[in-house]
Design a protein around this nucleic acid. Structure first.
Lengths: 185, 185
DNA sequence: TGGTATCGATACCTGAGGTAGCGTAACTGC
DNA sequence: GCAGTTACGCTACCTCAGGTATCGATACCA
C-alpha cells in the first residue's frame, strides 16, 4: 500500500503483488484457524513468503491484520435518496463485510488485541474507524460524538454476536438493528 | 465456591477465603495492567499464593477470570414497577458493573479470548450469560432469541466503547442506549 | 556489468500459559 | 498427641507464538 503509491520504482527486488497475496492468505488462515491460531508463521507459509518478509512490511501481527481489513473493507458506499436509505445501506454493508469468511474473525481478533495494546488501538481507530467516521458525519450532518455512539451500537452488536456464537448475525436481526437505529435518529 | 457449599469440611489444608483473595487480586491486577499483561504469575503474586494453587482451582486463565466476573456481578436486580423501569435498572446495573475498576477490562479481555477458544466461549455463555438470559426472559415475558438480540446490543455496545476508548461509557450515552432499547420494545 | 534493496532461510530471544514432582503445612478424626 | 488426608508453595520445566538478527541469494535498475 505504502510502496505502490511511490512515483518511480526504486532499484532492488520486486515486491508488487505481495501485499495482496499476504492479505488473501491472512483472511484464509484466520477463517480456517481463527485469529489466535492463525500464527504469523502459518500466514507466511500460506502466502508462500518468509515470515521475515511480513515483519519487514508490517511492524506487528495486529498491524498486518488491520491493513488487511482496511484493504478488505474499502470505501463505504454512503449513498441513498434519504437518510434512512443511506443508513440502511451502510449498516447492511458493514454487516455483510463482517459476515465474509475470515473478516469477522479477523476484526474481532484484532479488536481483542487492541483492548490491551494502546498503540494498536490507535492504529485501529485511525486507519480503520476514522475514515468512515468522517464520511458518516458529513453524510448524516451529525456531530462526531453522536455518530460515534451509533458506531459503537452497530459494530459492537455485530462483533458481540460474532464473538459469542462464532456465527455472523442473521439478516432478520440485522434488519432489527437497522430499525432500532433509524427510530433512534 | 464449589467447595464452600459442601456440607462437611473434608480433611486436609484449609482453603477458605482463598477464592475471594484471588478474585480481588485478579481484578486489581487487570485494572492496573490490563488483561493481557495481567499474567497468572502476577495475579498469584498479588494474591500471595503460588501459581500452581490457581491452576489447581481453575483450569485456565479464562476460567479464572470468568469465575471472577460471575462473583463480581452477582444476581441481577430485575425489579421495577413497569417493564421500562425494570429494563432501565438492568441496563444501568450492567453498565455500572462494567465501569467498575478492572471489571470492564476483565470482561473485554475474557470475551476476546473466548472468540477463538470454543471451550471458554461455552463457559462464558453458560456461567455468565445464561443465568441473566433466563431471568430476563421470565421478567420480560419475551422469547429467548429476542432477549438475546438485546443482550447483544447492550453488552456489545458497552464493550465496544470500552475496547475502543479504554474508558467506560458516559452516563449520558448509557441513557441514550436505554432510550433506544425502550423504543425498540 | 555493477549497485541496490528486498527476499528467503535459519537461528535465536522473550514472555506467557500451563504442567510435574516433591517436600511441607494444616486440618480432621481417633 | 498422633496418623491420615489434602492442599499448598516452590522449583524447574515444556510448548508455543510474537518478534529480531544475520547473511547469502536473487532480481531489478542504470
Amino acid at each position: 500500500m505504502t510502496r505502490s503509491t511511490m512515483p518511480a520504482r526504486p532499484p532492488g527486488r520486486p515486491r508488487s503483488g505481495v501485499d495482496a497475496v499476504v492479505f488473501a492468505a491472512t483472511l484464509a488462515t484466520v477463517h480456517e484457524l481463527g485469529y489466535a491460531h492463525a500464527t504469523v508463521d502459518r500466514i507466511a507459509a500460506a502466502a508462500g513468503v518468509a515470515k521475515t518478509t511480513i515483519y519487514r512490511r508490517w511492524p506487528s501481527k495486529g498491524d498486518l491484520v488491520t491493513a488487511c481489513l482496511v484493504d478488505a473493507f474499502g470505501p463505504a458506499p454512503l449513498t441513498g435518496q434519504t437518510t434512512a436509505d443511506l443508513l440502511t445501506g451502510a449498516i447492511r454493508w458493514i454487516a455483510g463485510k463482517i459476515a465474509e469468511p475470515g473478516v469477522g474473525a479477523a476484526f474481532a481478533g484484532v479488536f481483542t488485541d487492541a483492548v490491551n495494546d494502546p498503540a494498536l488501538r490507535a492504529t485501529l481507530a485511525g486507519r480503520l474507524q476514522q475514515p468512515y467516521l468522517v464520511a458518516l458525519c458529513e453524510a448524516l450532518h451529525e456531530p462526531p460524538e453522536r455518530v460515534l455512539f451509533f458506531v459503537d451500537v452497530v459494530v459492537g452488536t455485530l462483533l458481540h454476536r460474532m464473538g459469542m456464537t462464532g456465527e455472523p448475525m442473521t439478516a432478520a436481526d440485522v434488519d432489527a438493528l437497522i430499525g432500532m437505529v433509524l427510530r433512534a435518529l
